[in-house]
Write a protein that binds this DNA or RNA. Structure first.
Lengths: 223, 223
DNA sequence: CTGCATCCGCCTCGATACTG
DNA sequence: CAGTATCGAGGCGGATGCAG
């Protein structure tokens, strides 16, 4: 009956995978790391998942104390969000995403892409050891706007526009992920008109360095 | 046909899970993070895996460049070991193991345990920000011996005995994991004879602090 | 005996239909 | 919009077979 498939090993990794290891589970958590989501949003951002599976996974994650439901501002609509325990998974999911970026194949139309994944891609790419001056870099990826804030040598990725951005990056989601996966250089994307960079040239170089990208001088000059 | 179940998303996490997300895959990698393993060792340390699945997973991981086969010293016996790309997964697997340790249930006999998992548990528990003096702590868990080496404020976990250990810990695998999961305090394990601590009392306290354990004065006094 | 391959029953998964 | 119910397809687990 309720014989869920678990590993039966007294080991931290086995315990983690007993909770997170099934198909779609970490993808759901990825979605909730960006922001709280409604059921329909999750369905839309996870093409291929069965509606029953999504409901079952959410119920399980709520039982495990990783996800909770909240009322959305007065209406009776509900949304799912990560508890503190769930937020603890952020560095793990970002680590997996960074590792996986290097294994992405060339883009083809059979892939689906969402702009909001760019936010997590940026977080995954950031090299905390390469912080230089305090400033902000704004990203407009399709309809999503967010920014990197460097203050007192601490880096944060924050939803919404920046107050005083040194650089503003504008592109589409596919181009952005291709750059993150090193399939496309910022220079190549700029000259083909897929990417626009506005702001101080040196700030562009610092942003590239922070994200581990080729600090291409020509890409900066194009801004 | 060869329609492997993948996510079809242009995203780093999806790419990572397309490779690592299937059942048993990360458990195999955990085994290879401890040391290179022969096929039979893997079968023995992964109770419940089908022999066909293990063979299939290994073949896939070799194709992906994460695992490679090596000749074991002259004999024609082969062993599997992680490539550099595979070793890059160490912080991720350790992060999952650390997260999962907090979700372990009480031990029961239906769990299997292996002493070698203690080595990874130690690595997962280490808090790099709590390094104090340079010294070595030796662990003898069942038939496995390894040690933590702190040199110039850098921590390494190394197989085999320590040259000059400040502390020697001796216990069984179940007790060790229970302590790591905070189900059992070092003190309680010591007074019941499950754990023996030899060495300088203050070094024991430093070792506990490094591993994020209650620095229990009585446990140190019992050494 | 080790290192796999083959076969088969079962359970998870994915798609569609259906309900409040 | 937010799920629940149902059912075919395929991944998984265990037993068995077989070659070096």
């Amino acid at each position: 009956m309720s014989s869920k498939r678990i590993y039966h090993q007294y080991c931290g990794l086995a315990a983690a995978l007993d909770i997170l290891g099934e198909r779609w589970t970490l993808m759901i958590i990825r979605e909730l790391l960006v922001r709280p989501r409604r059921y329909g949003e999750l369905l839309n951002n996870l093409p291929g998942i069965g509606t029953n599976l999504l409901a079952e996974r959410l119920k399980f994650l709520v039982d495990e104390g990783i996800v909770a439901q909240v009322e959305v501002d007065g209406s009776r609509r509900q949304a799912y969000h990560l508890t503190e325990t769930g937020q603890d998974l952020r560095p793990i999911v970002l680590g997996l995403a960074r590792w996986g970026l290097h294994h992405l194949e060339d883009y083809s139309s059979e892939y689906s892409v969402r702009a909001s994944w760019g936010l997590l891609a940026v977080e995954a790419m950031i090299d905390q050891d390469r912080v230089s001056v305090d400033e902000q870099y704004e990203f407009k990826i399709d309809d999503e706007t967010f920014h990197i804030d460097v203050s007192d040598s601490v880096v944060h990725v924050i939803a919404g526009p920046a107050a005083t951005p040194s650089v503003t990056v504008k592109t589409d989601a596919v181009t952005f992920v291709q750059i993150g996966a090193q399939k496309l250089s910022p220079l190549a994307a700029t000259v083909t008109g897929k990417l626009s960079l506005e702001g101080d040239a040196n700030a562009v170089l610092r942003a590239c360095a922070l994200l581990g990208l080729e600090a291409d001088p020509l890409a900066a000059a194009a801004g």
